[in-house]
Each structure stands twice: as C-alpha cells, then as structure tokens.
Computed example of a mutant assay.
Amino acid sequence: MERPKLILAGGSGFLGRHLARHFTQLGYAVVVLGRTARPGVVRWNGRTVGPWAAELEGAAVLINLAGKSVDCRYHAVNRYAIVRSRTDSTRILGEAVAACVTPPAVWLNASTATIYQDTREAQPANTETHGLLGRNFSETVAQRWEAEFNLAPVPATRRVALRAAIVLGTDGGALPVMAQLARFGLCTPQGSGQQCISWLHIADFCRAVEFLVARPDLEGAFNLCAPAPLSNHAFMALLDQHYRPRWHLPQPQWLLEIGAFLLGTETELILKSRKVIPDRLLSAGFRFRFSDCPTALADLLPRLT
C-alpha cells in the first residue's frame, strides 16, 4: 500500500526535523521543501510557484513552517524580511494548493502564541475565543500571517493555524541556550521575572500536530502550548534547582538590553509576558504527556547535561 504523503514546507529547522521524524514513524512519506535540494528535500524559494508544486498533488497533509527567525534585531530590513518570509510563503502555497486537481486534505500553517498582547499573571489567560490580540510589531506580524492563510482560495482543504508557544527540546529552540547560561549562574529572573512563559514539550508539539491532522472536524486557530504557563521567575528557579551553579548573576532589564544588542537580538523575546491556554485542544480531548513545566524540564534537562 502506498504511504500517505506529507509535505513539510520550511521543514529543515528544529520543529521541522522533529515533525519529519514523528510522521515518518507513523508511516507517512515526508517530503521537505527547503532552500537547498538534497535527498528528501525538494528545492523551493518560498516566493514563486515552481516544479516543487507538483509534490502537493494528492498529498494527505501540508504543513508550512517557513519564516525568517525572529531572533534578530528588529530594524527595517529584518522587519521586512520577517513579514514577507511568512506572508509570501503562505500566499504561494495557497496558489499551489488551489491549482491542484487533488489538493491536500489538510493544511496546517505555522502561527505563534505571540499574536496575543502582553498578559500578566493577574490577568486572564488568552484562549482562542477570548484572547486579546496585540498591536505591536510581533503581534501584527502574526495577524498578517494568519490573514494571508485565511485568504487562500482552497475550499477543498481544511485549514489549521498553529499558534505555537515556546517549544522546549534538547536539540534546538531556546532551551539549550538557556541551560548553558544557567550553568554559569544566569538562572536568575530576567528583568522583573514577573512575565509569563507559555511553553510546550517538543514531544507534545508533535503529538498535537498529529492529533489535529487526524481530526477532520477541527479547523481554525489552535493554541499549541501546555495548559500551565508559569512566571519567568519560576522557570529560572527550575533551571537553578537542576544546575545549582556556585554563583548567581543578576539580569536586570538594562543589562539584558545591552546583551541583546551585542548578540543581535531583541529583549522582547524574553521580556514579553505570554499567558496562553490551549482551550480548543483540551476541549477536543487532547491529553498532554508533559502538562507542567517541572515534569517537562525533568525529562529534558538531564539530556543537556
């Protein structure tokens, strides 16, 4: 029997590698669309329709993760690239799907939990139904991204927007960097430490995507995060408990601003308060393996030591 095909656009990074492995183990034939052709990867530029579009014909699943990393300075050139890399790739995939005789049954497009406004501990958490959308750069990027996705003329294809929080894993994302810094005493609260962190174990990220693929009754935006956000202060305390460094270095906001400038990034990535709940996933019956952060870090941190 022929294996169902899954197309993974922009799938060469941390999340894409895990999804490719996960769905291959489930029996899918995974085809990655990437910038450089190699075995298992079909070349595309994310801007124009090309020979790669033939791969979508008859595919069971399309997942789009394409987009320039936000781990950079938000000057004009990078802002333009961040927006266009997301909207252009989504638009061109929509054109390619619309041209298919047998289009993919489901299209899952990356989005971000950063779409919601800065939400502090005392405020209600953001759900898909009652979340408050923000108006700053990162938040409007997410809204433009989802708008492009929703405008795609693909009536025969179910659409799901993945509003993913910070995904924790051992081979990519933020956790390896934070763990390395924690070993040297940078496991103190960042800034005030009162900002909320919404997070998700990489295993549950893959399982949630699998769950959404398998449920033809589910469409629209879904928050991909564990059901228990925590404060930055509490998260850093968990790192401190694990690594127990000999000294502790303070991380006031002014010092973080200097560090972000030297490293070519933005403090928003760690200082914005993201308080998000996966209300629709829970209502649909999804069950997390790692529903609280202490359990998730207990699984991941020993493999980073």
Rank of each mutant, 00 (worst) to 15 (best):
P250L: 09
A147W: 13
L168A: 05
Q180P: 00
S198F: 10
D118L: 08
G134V: 04
Q253I: 02
L62F: 09
L162M: 15
Q253G: 08
L151T: 12
P216C: 04
E146Q: 10
P294H: 02
S283A: 15
L238C: 08
L282E: 13
P51C: 06
P189I: 04
Y243V: 09
L212K: 05
S291G: 05
V209P: 00
P155F: 12
E128Q: 11
G134F: 04
F211T: 07
L281R: 02
L33F: 14
V49F: 00
V276N: 11
G10K: 02
F235A: 11
G10A: 00
A113V: 05
G94S: 11
Y116S: 04
R158T: 13
A60P: 01
G40Y: 10
A174S: 13
R91P: 07
R289S: 14
F288D: 04
R158G: 12
L65M: 07
I7L: 13
S231V: 09
F205V: 07
L300G: 08
A60C: 07
I258W: 09
C206T: 11
R38S: 11
S291F: 09
R86Q: 00
F288G: 10
R120S: 08
R135D: 15
F222M: 02
G16R: 01
G40V: 06
A54Q: 13
Y28T: 03
G191Y: 06
F286C: 04
I258A: 15
I7G: 03
C225K: 09
G131S: 12
T140S: 13
H201I: 06
A228V: 11
A105H: 12
W145F: 03
V83S: 06
T188N: 09
A125W: 13
R47W: 01
P250M: 11
R84L: 05
L181C: 14
G58F: 05
D71F: 14
R183K: 15
A122R: 13
Y116D: 04
F235Y: 14
T24V: 11
I92N: 05
V77W: 09
P278M: 00
Q180V: 00
S192F: 09
V97F: 02
G46Q: 01
R21G: 14
R73K: 15
V160I: 13
L297T: 08
V49I: 05
T140E: 15
Q194G: 05
R215S: 08
T114L: 13
E139K: 02
A59T: 04
P4D: 12
H22L: 14
E121S: 14
G58V: 07
P176H: 07
G27K: 01
G191V: 04
V41G: 11
G220Y: 01
E121R: 15
F211D: 05
L26Y: 06
R280E: 10
L93A: 06
A110C: 11
A156Q: 15
Y74M: 03
V31W: 08
M178E: 13
P104I: 05
A60D: 09
V41C: 12
L62Y: 01
L181K: 14
I82K: 10
A147P: 03
Q251L: 15
A228G: 10
P124W: 07
H18I: 05
R86Y: 02
A234T: 09
V31P: 03
N150V: 06
N150F: 10
L186M: 15
T24F: 06
E266K: 02
S231Q: 14
L255A: 15
I63T: 11
V154I: 15
